[in-house]
Every structure is written in C-alpha cells, then in structure tokens.
Design a protein around this nucleic acid. Structure first.
Length: 478
RNA sequence: GGCCGCGUGGCGGAGUGGUUACGCAGCGGAUUGCAAAUCCGUGUACUCCGGUUCAAUUCCGGACGCGGCCUCCA
C-alpha cells in the first residue's frame, strides 16, 4: 500500500488564496526572506519571522531535498538608523569605522539569537553593502526604461510608469492619496514615488555613482540581491505583514519594470504580528523585548526561556494569525516541550540517524505542515503520536520503534531542538547514595538529597525496573 | 478617511454546512514510602442581529469589538 505524498499548499498574498505550490524548478527551489536591519538587537517579532521562514525552508528541503533549495535572507547594513546608532555609540570613531562596528556586532548577535531559536543558516546571507554595484545597475536600467527619473538630488521610481502598481497590497494610488499622510515632496512627480538613490552629505556614508555620491533607497537592495542570487523570477518571497506595503510592493515595481517580467516571485508569504501581554510591543509602553532579553535575562516573566520553548510558543499559532506573546503562553510551551523532550530523548537512546531524508515523519504531521504550515495541527499530531507511543500494546511490538523514530523526525522537521542534559560526577554520587538510602528505607535521608538536588534544578523520578529494582531518572528543569 | 485581517470553552488553538479537535490549567482515579513523571476519566464553546438552507460556529449581509497597513517597522 502506498499513500500519496501530501502536496504542499501555500497561501499567496498576491492572490489572497491558498494554492498548491509548484516550483519553477524542482532541482532549485528558491526562497527569499527579508532579514534584519542591523542597528540593534532583534526583537521577538523579528524572531517570529525568522522562525516561520526557517520552517518553510526545512519543509522545502524535506520535500525537494536539502541540496535542491536555495534560501536567501539579506542583511541590511545600509540605513539611516544605522548611521544614527553609529554616531550615538561611537562618537569618537570615524563614521565608516563606527558603522562597521555597529553592523558587525549586531549581525553577529542576530545570527546567535536566531540559531538559539532553532533556525538553520540560510543558503546565502548577502549584505546590502556588498551589492551596491548590482543596485546601481538596476537603477540605471530603470532610468533607461523610463521607470525612474532624477529630481531634487534623488533618483526616484515613477509609480505612474507601472500600470498595475499596487497589486500585492490591493490598493490603488488614489487610495494612498486619500490618506493624505504621504509626505508631500514637491520634487516628486507623484507623491507615491519612492527613492532609489539619494545623495549623501559629507558626513553620511556614500558610494560614487553616475548620479553623484550617495546611498541606495530602502527597497532596491532586495530587488538587486534577489536577482543576483535567485534570478529575475523566483518561487517564494516572504516577510512580515507590515512589509506588504510599501516595501514588497515597491520591490515588485522595481524588479518587474527592470526585467520586463510578469512576476518577481510567484508566491508572496507574510507572517502575522505579535503583541505582548495584549498590547502592541513598543519601547514607550515598556513591553519591548529582544530575543536576547528572553534567552539570557529575567526581563520577561522573571526567568530565562530556552530557545526551543520560544520557538514552540510561536508555532503554537498559525503563522498568519496574530500572537499575543505572554508569560502564560510561554509556560504552556515549556510544559509541552518537557513532554516532547522525554519522548525525543527516549528515541535518541535508540540511536536513530538524524537525517531528514532517510526516515519519514508521521504522515498526519507532515500533511498538517504541508497545508500552509499548519503548525497547531502539526503539534496536535505530536500529542497524538505521544499518546499512541504510550500504549502498552504498541510498546510490545517492533512497530513501536518505527513510530518513535517517526516522532523524532517530526520534531526535527519542526526545528525543535532536543539535546540530552548531563550532570556532574558529584550529582551521580548523590543519586547513588539516595538509591542506597531508599533501599535501606531511610526515607528522611533520601528526601534530603532529593531536596538538595531540586535546589540545583534537578528533578527526580523514581520507578522500578523489570526486575522490581528501584531506579531513579533525573531531569534538569528548564 | 481608504485598504486588509481577526472575534471558538478559565487560557492557548485547529477545523467543519449536519458527527469528540487537540493541548495547558482544574477536578477525580491508578501508580508511589511521599513525590515527580506517566496512564485513565471528566466539565465548560463557537461576539451579536438578520438572511440563505431541511440544517450554520462553518456561507451571505449588517452591527459591535480587536489588530495591522496607508510614515521607519517582522
């Protein structure tokens, strides 16, 4: 009996519908996600985006083979916020040096943070500053084709030159004007026109160009880098909901006009926002948390949170829905994670190969993920699997091992990290001493040791083995 | 003002035109020297008002509430 492999379906912001995903080239499935602007620690909202597209990356690798997927996530290291931060933090250094210091340390911190959240490294992580020439080439092409013009010391994209501008966000130019919040720049032909290149003053970073020493606008880098690494048209482009307009809309405008193409990416995916304890996360409300805060400090809920718990807390909700990030939610994720860990460690003791392709996951689990990354449903399957695994009758059959391996693979596909803990030799001695006390029915001594270990965060679980001998399992509390 | 999305039991959270989601917490039980872990059992639900339908939480319309974008933003 063979069951058809579930077909991956994805919700496409461009069409506002869910549809089967058909890659342009099965041997090179291409994904681009907007990465961080490296001027400060990434916050947990950034973390959610990283996790969502990492999961998609994992799922694509699982489906098409790890070597057949290219995932590009850019690092934006040109930005006026970076300049401001450099001036503030390193007033004594020359600007370029100060900027490099800011971008390098921030980028390194970002890599560390998202790795802790269980994110794989993307295939390519290009930096804007390493792709200035590509941006200039694209800008020149847009000028040559009449989609851009120079005015007021800037090169601007002319939205009127693109008849179907606004497709992604579902808004037309009149809608935008109705809001009347678009800054009125007299040098713009249309108030919605946006900057491709702007001149830099002496004390701003800049690159020489045919239009003078300056720096690129915000949107052009993604157009240039995605073309360089993924081609003029590629499969999937992702980012946060807030990027739909103007960022992604403008990327599409630049790329399609420069290439004369019908599409920049076939599928556009956007993850939902998160709130913190029911409120919008903002520095002024004092509920702004970085990934680093959650991982390494007691700022949120008075304790540190393991990366895999944060990841699970995110995946408990479908990626397009809003999340209310709360302490209660993290506590629930922590509990679920402990349970997942126990079964995963049981599987690891049997020594299964950690190889995505060699072992299949549970089919219900996989079907859930293939349905537009329905992670809550996938987690439901994990609960079902654990429930099945604990069935005595199943445990007596060889199939139990296979099911255990499937479960382990499911967790891997989700990117939930599980690593065995270790304890010191001293703790091992205490465990042995306690077991001896138990066998001597010296419960007072046994409880004393148990309490002592509990204070170190080590929880004990007594049981009897097949021969009726007392045994103790331990667990490091997280 | 324009555009987009959401409203499910104490909490988290899928899904469906008619049948138990699931989990966390709670409660009861098994087990345990006591615990912990585990297992078994268990209550509470689909914002409101219309419409379509034999039947709506599920489709349509409206109201109310919440969030996002239109300006830097995951």
């Amino acid at each position: 009996m063979t069951t058809a492999k579930p077909q991956l379906s994805l919700y496409n912001t461009l069409t506002r519908t869910k549809a089967p995903f058909v890659p342009m080239d099965e041997n090179n499935v291409r994904l681009y996600a907007c990465g961080p602007t490296v001027y400060d620690f990434a916050h947990i909202g950034n973390g959610r985006a990283a996790i969502v597209f990492d999961l998609l990356f994992r799922l694509l690798r699982h489906t098409y083979g790890a070597e057949h997927v290219t995932y590009v996530r850019n690092i934006t290291d040109v930005d006026d916020k970076i300049n401001a931060r450099a001036l503030r933090d390193h007033p004594d250094l020359p600007l370029n040096e100060a900027i490099r210091k800011v971008t390098e340390t921030t980028a390194a911190q970002y890599q560390k943070d998202v790795a802790a959240l269980g994110c794989l490294e993307p295939t390519i992580q290009p930096r804007a500053t390493e792709n200035i020439a590509e941006m200039q080439t694209m800008i020149q092409r847009l000028l040559d084709k009449g989609n851009a013009y120079q005015a007021g010391g800037e090169v601007l994209f002319a939205v009127d030159s693109m008849p179907d501008y606004g497709q992604l966000s579902g808004r037309n130019l009149e809608d935008n004007l109705a809001g009347a919040r678009v800054a009125v720049d007299t040098h713009k032909r249309n108030p919605a026109d946006f900057v491709l290149w702007k001149l830099s003053s002496e004390d701003e970073p800049g690159w020489d160009s045919p239009w003078g020493r300056g720096r690129p606008g915000w949107h052009i880098e993604c157009s240039a880098m995605s073309e360089r690494y993924l081609g003029q048209t590629f499969d999937i482009h992702g980012g946060g909901l807030d990027l739909i307009f103007p960022h992604h809309e403008n990327e599409i405008a630049q790329s399609r006009c420069a290439h004369g193409s019908h599409a920049m990416a076939n599928v556009w995916m956007h993850n939902g926002f998160l709130q913190v304890e029911g409120q919008k996360m903002s520095k002024s409300l004092g509920n702004f948390f970085t990934i680093h805060d959650l991982l390494e400090t007691n700022a949120f809920g008075g304790r540190k949170w393991p990366g895999e718990v944060l990841r699970l807390a995110m995946l408990m909700t479908h990626y397009r829905e809003p999340i209310d990030f709360s302490q209660r939610r993290l506590e629930e994720a922590l509990r679920i994670n402990e349970k997942l860990r126990r079964w995963a460690l049981a599987a690891d003791e049997l020594g299964f190969e950690p190889d995505y392709d060699r072992l299949s996951t549970n089919s219900d689990f996989e079907a859930a993920l293939m349905d537009d990354l329905n992670t809550p449903d996938a987690i439901q399957s994990l609960h079902q699997q654990m429930s099945d695994l604990s069935d005595r009758e199943l445990q007596s059959r060889p199939e139990h091992n296979r099911r255990l391996a499937e479960f382990r693979q499911s967790l891997r596909l989700l990117g939930i990290k599980v690593e065995a803990d270790t304890v010191s030799p001293l703790v091992r001695e205490q465990l042995a001493a306690r077991l001896a006390a138990l066998n001597a029915k010296n419960f007072a001594e046994a409880d004393r040791i148990r309490n002592e270990l509990a204070e170190q965060g080590i929880a004990l679980m007594d049981y009897k083995d097949e021969t009726g001998q007392r045994q103790t399992k331990w667990e490091v509390k997280r």
